[in-house]
């Protein structure tokens, strides 16, 4: 019997093994193509693709981006080509450069929208997990409104679980009083995992024009500024549910990954950091072993719990 080489970075997410816990977050990585031109993205645990809806969406008018101290606001508004186009074009294209199960991020404006999109993506062998976004702060009449009410979040969870055999991860909004209550409702409705946090609702005003910078008036804050809020919420949710939790919000370094996993996250998503440095996830993965050595961590699995 040969020596078994243990992968120090390996983790498991809803029964699927990942080479490492680093997952670029939806909305910061497109469908992978722009990054695959820069490095081999198969080094990632996986990635969560651009939030996809039933129908194509142009999104909000520009400006969609504003800067903040240690972060940024976005109000993209779920621009995407629609699930049928993603299945016909983006997923087949992705096969050429990404050979792992991908996380499909899904958004909607009604329960039927979520069901339609998830049912279609359920049939795609490349999709490893469905990340159901009930937390987009930048669209009206949907998105976040499902994620701020435990009953509505549970209803989406139940409806989606009925049409897919793939693991369903509910992506939650931090713009609530008690995020653990929403997470528990999703778990009770059959969710296989929880991911959090989506962006924090914010705004900026242009001093010269005296008007909001964002055409949408408000947008979602992300980046290192939100990390402590995200860490606190992940910590609370991990202690409220028994399903795996994917932690995200401002993660920018290997140390941030360790800290998020010490709060109990099974894996992590990295968002805004990809936009500032397209090589951010590659760098984090490469720096993880040395960071683990520094803090006496043999394997990431030992941090769990």
């Amino acid at each position: 019997m040969g020596e078994v080489r243990e992968n120090r970075l390996g983790v498991t997410l809803c029964g699927v093994e990942l080479d490492n816990p680093v997952i670029p977050a939806s909305g910061t990585f497109g469908y992978g193509k722009e990054f695959a031109e820069l490095y081999d993205i198969n080094i990632l645990g996986t990635f969560s693709f651009k939030g996809t809806t039933k129908d194509p969406r142009l999104g909000n008018p520009v400006p969609r981006i504003a800067e903040a101290a240690s972060g940024m606001l976005n109000a993209v508004g779920l621009q995407n080509p629609g699930v049928d186009h993603v299945i016909a074009h983006e997923l087949p294209e992705m096969k050429a450069f990404f050979h792992k199960p991908v996380m499909a991020n899904v958004s909607g404006f009604s329960v039927d929208d979520y069901v339609y999109t998830c049912e279609k993506l359920d049939k795609e062998p490349q999709v490893g997990w469905l990340e159901v976004n009930v937390s987009c702060p930048n669209v009206h009449g949907g998105g976040m409104s499902f994620g701020t009410d435990p009953k509505a979040a549970a209803e989406v969870t139940r409806a989606v679980k009925a049409v897919t055999a793939k693991p369903v991860i509910l992506k939650l909004s931090p713009n609530v009083t008690d995020i653990a209550e929403i997470a528990k409702a999703c778990e009770a409705a059959g969710a296989d995992g929880i991911s959090l946090i989506n962006t924090l609702l914010g705004m900026r005003i242009d001093l010269k024009t005296r008007k909001p910078i964002l055409a949408n008036t408000t947008g979602g804050l992300s980046g290192p500024a939100v990390f402590p809020v995200a860490l606190r919420m992940v910590y609370q949710v991990v202690r409220a549910v028994s399903i795996p939790v994917v932690g995200m919000g401002g993660i920018s370094s290997a140390e941030d990954v360790l800290e998020m996993m010490m709060a109990g996250a099974a894996a992590v998503e990295v968002g805004a950091a990809n936009l500032v440095d397209p090589f951010a996830c590659k760098k984090i993965i490469e720096e993880l072993p040395a960071a683990m050595d520094k803090y006496g961590i043999k394997t990431l699995q030992e941090l769990k719990g």
């Binding site: 909305g27 910061t28 497109g30 722009e34 651009k50 520009v62 400006p63 981006i65 621009q79 936009l275």
Partner: peptide, 22 residues
Amino acid sequence: EERMGCGFGACMGCTIPVKGGY
């Protein structure tokens, strides 16, 4: 010109409509 997030096509922060798409 437009306010950008990433500058390399990842974030959809600077998308505008054009004839036949965006």
